Simulated assay, not measured.
Amino acid sequence: MSERAGTLDRPDGERLAWRAVDGVGPTVVWLGGFRSDMTGTKAEALAEWAQAKGRAYLRFDYLGHGQSSGDFQAKGTITRWREDALAVLDALVDGPAILVGSSMGGWIACLAAMAQRGRVAAMVLIAPAPDFTEKLMAPEIPPEGRAALAADGVWLRPSEYGDPYPITRALLEDGARWSILGSEPVPIEVPVRILQGGADPDVPWRHALELANALSGQDVTFTLIKDGDHRLSRPQDIARLIAAVEEF
């Protein structure tokens, strides 16, 4: 079964690029990570799986990511990317959805599930990074980064994965609005499977475990892959991901 492609118009004139495989069952929806896109290894592997199994599958790029339009630095916030995910669910998904979120996508998946409780049937999260702007990113900003944020509103954060990331004051301040890890349970009751690398340099396994423990639902499984990195894109990691999705 072939994959369709298109764009979704947003009210401000921006366009979100998407690709879909028509099939049966709840639609599996890929939610990528910060500065990632829908052509990554895991997203492609799920597309191949969906085509082989005849399963419905949708992937897309947030504003300022991949093939979607928009200025990442000027408009990129958790608020905006949450809105993108909700718009995609509303416009392109019929019936229930299984959200598969990687890194930041795990946070966006949780926010979407909380906003559309009747639409989300289950979630599979890979190295989920809820509250990463406040709990993982902000504490690691060096003095020169804080000076740049104070003076210019943006800091170019070095990355192991390519060009430096523009981290803006708006991103950090907005992210704090969407914090879900605190004293209250995270009100998500659907089944959740979490895959986490023990050697992840970006999302410590204890951070992902904190999310697992905070979820109010009881059907939650946390799998620690001791030698796994952040991307979890090795063949054995992909096999675990597909097995987790196939549970639903």
Rank of each mutant, 00 (worst) to 15 (best):
D219V: 00
G6C: 03
S68E: 04
A50D: 09
S233P: 05
V220L: 14
G217T: 05
I141R: 15
S183N: 07
R55H: 14
T133M: 13
L241R: 07
P166N: 12
D163T: 06
A5L: 08
L86E: 07
L86Q: 03
A85V: 00
V93Y: 10
Q116R: 15
I141C: 14
L111T: 06
F248C: 08
I167Y: 07
G6T: 00
E83R: 12
Y161F: 03
S183D: 15
R231T: 03
T133C: 11
E134N: 09
P139E: 01
A148D: 04
A56C: 05
A122T: 03
A109W: 05
G66I: 00
L195Y: 02
A150Q: 08
G175V: 00
I188K: 04
A199D: 09
G101D: 02
I167R: 12
R19D: 04
T221D: 08
P201G: 11
R119E: 03
V21Y: 04
Q218H: 15
D174F: 02
F60G: 05
A151K: 14
E173S: 12
R119F: 01
R117D: 10
L136W: 01
I238D: 07
I194V: 10
P142D: 02
F132H: 06
K53S: 15
A150K: 15
F222T: 08
A214N: 10
P143R: 04
E44L: 08
E134C: 12
V192S: 10
L92W: 03
A5G: 07
S216H: 13
V245P: 02
W49D: 07
R157Y: 06
Q67K: 03
T223A: 05
P158T: 00
F132W: 00
A56V: 09
G32A: 03
Y62Q: 12
W178A: 02
I108Q: 01
V154D: 02
F60A: 03
A20V: 09
D237A: 01
V124S: 01
R117F: 04
Y161C: 07
D12K: 08
A20G: 14
T27M: 14
I78L: 13
G25T: 10
V120A: 02
A199C: 11
P128D: 12
E210R: 15
M38K: 04
A20N: 10
W30F: 05
F132C: 02
A244R: 06
D229R: 07
K42S: 09
V186E: 00
E140F: 06
P235R: 12
P130I: 11
E184T: 13
P187K: 02
A43V: 09
D227I: 02
M1F: 11
A129H: 13
L209C: 02
G153E: 09
T79K: 10
P187C: 10
G182A: 03
G145E: 05
A199S: 14
M137Q: 12
A199Y: 08
G197P: 14
T223G: 09
A176K: 12
H65G: 09
P96V: 07
L46Y: 09
R19T: 11
R19Q: 07
A122S: 13
I238V: 03
T79R: 15
L125Y: 11
Y57F: 06
Y165M: 04
A85G: 10
V100F: 00
R193D: 14
S159Q: 04
H65Y: 05
D94M: 13
R80S: 14
L31F: 04
A151P: 06
G76W: 01
R169G: 08
R55W: 12
D152K: 15
R19A: 12
D71K: 11
D22M: 14
